[in-house]
Design a protein around this nucleic acid. Structure first.
Lengths: 236, 236
DNA sequence: TAAGGTATACTAGTATGGCAGTTTCGTGCT
DNA sequence: AGCACGAAACTGCCATACTAGTATACCTTA
């Protein structure tokens, strides 16, 4: 059921439907990095990955390049490729831009969504409630992003969402990191409902306010995170 | 003297200083596509490119991948790779996001720039006046971007600028296209001066207003462009 | 024992060849 | 003349071999 997140992330790889070895490896590694299965700072050898996926080094190499462009790995020629560390400055930058763009886009969307769009959002909300009850946090995270992505797409801003997401990789990883701890997803679901209602009623003020609140809530205690996982972060 | 633009564009390819064959080809092709030397819709064969740059097909392949991620080419497996057409929707989307982000960032920057930053901006302005007098339009374009990039970088938002630029490739190509026609760069330089003054005085209102005006001015007559270069654009 | 230099085992970068699709164009048949 | 078929010439995809640069462990030497 990871497809919710993945379909958003990859999408633009192959104009046709077919999936190359490259796409497979790219999806897998990207997923593993974003979900901290591959921990920041880990060394990734082309050889090792090519053996794990049973492909040659060529597609792996290309995947590494893409991941570097995404800012997810760093390649040091003749030395090695490493999962990039989480950069708190990048994190804040991503969050800031997202707040900026999303409040604007969502105000624009208020009252303009089609019945179809609203249905999609409501369905996602239902899924969120279930996942929340089951304490399936990773799926919650995916659905959270899916909710926001749907709104962007509904206003014809799919590319904007992708660009903003691109900038928010460290934000995402930090959110995953925080999952191991507490955190009340109830609040998030409630906020989503508030956004949904605001969108339906067309209340620009409300949706902008809630979204801002929603994203600011995600400003977690960074120092604590850094204390707890010191070698996951770049030192300032 | 293209370095002004290029250094901004590439930057993050190689953590070290050295440049691989891949980087060279990437830079060159990217430049050629953005400046319409390679026209939208052109077929690009791996073979042809590898011969032109006297490298093997492997780095060329990798460059094609990167360009696809940038949205500058489209790869159809077993058929060919083509320079992507300009999409007016993407163009407007890029312009919209840029307006949104840049007005916010620049208001934030007002009154907070260091002497060093202001000096850099003023130097760029001087260069612009010269290029304007010489009617060196391509350099004007590069300097225009450089001016804005400098502001972003000065507020520690370099990555934001890159992400926004990424989204603005079609916007950029359209600007290049328009260069062949009229257009009063004087106005642009004057606006830049106004921005500069506003930044120095710390007048948030002024800079935001001018930037918005500045970017809206770039809303060119799209229909005319499409009429004139019909096969450069995707049909809606 | 400690320091320095060298050999070796890595790394990523590049070149090349073979494969499997797709397109194109020429040939032969109707 | 027009249409269908097939061969050939592309395309990108992947595997493999080789090059060159880097880190490290070990051995030599002072």
């Amino acid at each position: 059921m990871e497809e919710v997140a993945i379909s958003v992330l990859v999408s633009s790889l192959n104009p046709q439907g077919r999936e190359s070895a490259r796409d497979t490896v790219y999806r897998a590694l990207r997923h593993d990095i974003l979900h901290l299965i591959l921990k920041p700072g880990t060394k990734m050898s082309e050889q090792e990955v090519s053996e794990r996926f049973e492909v040659s080094r060529t597609p792996v190499r290309e995947v590494f390049m893409c991941l570097m462009q995404d800012g997810l790995v760093e390649i040091y020629p003749q030395r090695g490729t490493y999962v990039s560390l989480i950069n708190l400055e990048y994190l804040e930058e991503g969050r800031y831009v997202r707040e900026l763009v999303e409040t604007a886009v969502i105000s624009e969307a208020a009252g303009r969504l089609s019945e179809d769009d609203l249905f999609r959002l409501e369905t996602t909300l239902a899924a969120q409630e279930i996942s929340c009850r089951n304490k399936d946090y990773l799926r919650m995270l995916a659905l959270d992003d899916h909710f926001h992505a749907t709104i962007f797409r509904a206003c014809g801003r799919a590319r904007t969402w992708e660009a903003v997401s691109q900038l928010s990789h460290d934000f995402y990883r930090a959110r995953v990191l925080r999952l191991s701890h507490d955190f009340n997803w109830d609040t998030i679901v409630r906020q989503h409902y508030a956004i949904f209602e605001g969108l339906r009623k067309g209340d620009k003020e409300q949706v902008a306010r809630v979204v801002r609140e929603h994203l600011r809530m995600a400003i977690m205690d960074r120092e604590r995170l850094r204390k707890e996982f010191p070698d996951y972060f770049v030192q300032p």
